Amino acid sequence: METIKVNEKEFKIIKLLGKGKGGYSYLVSYDKEKYVVKQIHHEPCEYYQFGNKIEAELSDYNKLYSTGIRMPKMLDIDMKNERILKEFIEGYTIYELALEDKVRPSYIKQIKNMCEILYPLNINIDYFPTNFIVSNELLWYIDYECNDYMEEWNFENWGIKYWSKTPELIEYYNKNKN
Rank of each mutant, 00 (worst) to 15 (best):
I94E: 10
G23A: 06
N147P: 00
E100V: 02
E116S: 14
K9A: 14
E171M: 02
H41M: 05
T3A: 11
Y24N: 13
N7Q: 12
D60P: 01
I170H: 13
D78S: 01
K34D: 00
L121E: 15
F155T: 09
Y61Q: 03
F132D: 09
Q39Y: 03
R104P: 00
I54W: 04
M150N: 15
N131I: 01
N147W: 06
S66F: 01
K63L: 08
I142F: 09
I84F: 05
N178K: 03
E55P: 02
N174M: 11
D126C: 05
K177N: 14
A98F: 04
I40W: 12
L169N: 10
H42C: 04
L64A: 08
I69W: 08
S106D: 04
T93F: 13
D126I: 07
S29G: 01
K9G: 06
F155V: 12
W158L: 06
M1F: 10
E87Y: 06
L75M: 10
Y107A: 02
K86T: 00
R70S: 07
N131F: 06
Q39S: 13
K161S: 15
E152Q: 13
W158P: 05
C45E: 12
C146T: 04
S29P: 02
E152A: 07
K19F: 07
E116V: 00
L85N: 05
Y48T: 08
K165L: 11
E8M: 09
D78G: 01
Y173G: 01
E43T: 10
C146G: 08
T166S: 14
E171K: 07
E43A: 10
K34Q: 09
E33A: 03
Y162N: 08
I54L: 10
N7M: 10
N131P: 10
S164G: 00
G159E: 15
L16K: 15
L58C: 06
L64R: 09
K32W: 10
E116T: 04
K19V: 14
W163D: 04
N52L: 03
I160E: 14
L121V: 00
Y47W: 13
I108K: 07
D31C: 07
Y61R: 02
Y30D: 13
K177Q: 07
T166D: 13
E137R: 07
K109V: 00
E116G: 08
Y149P: 09
Q39V: 06
P105G: 03
E116N: 14
W140G: 08
V103H: 06
K38V: 01
Y149R: 12
G22K: 07
Q110I: 01
Y30M: 11
S106A: 03
P120C: 04
I94A: 15
M74D: 00
N81L: 03
K161W: 08
I40C: 10
G51I: 00
E10T: 11
K19D: 09
W153F: 12
Y35H: 12
D76P: 01
T3K: 14
P120W: 06
S164F: 10
M114C: 00
Y65M: 02
N7A: 03
I117G: 05
N136V: 00
Y173P: 03
L27P: 08
F88D: 03
T67Y: 05
N81F: 05
Y119E: 12
V6I: 14
L138V: 04
Y48I: 13
L97G: 05
M1S: 15
E137S: 08
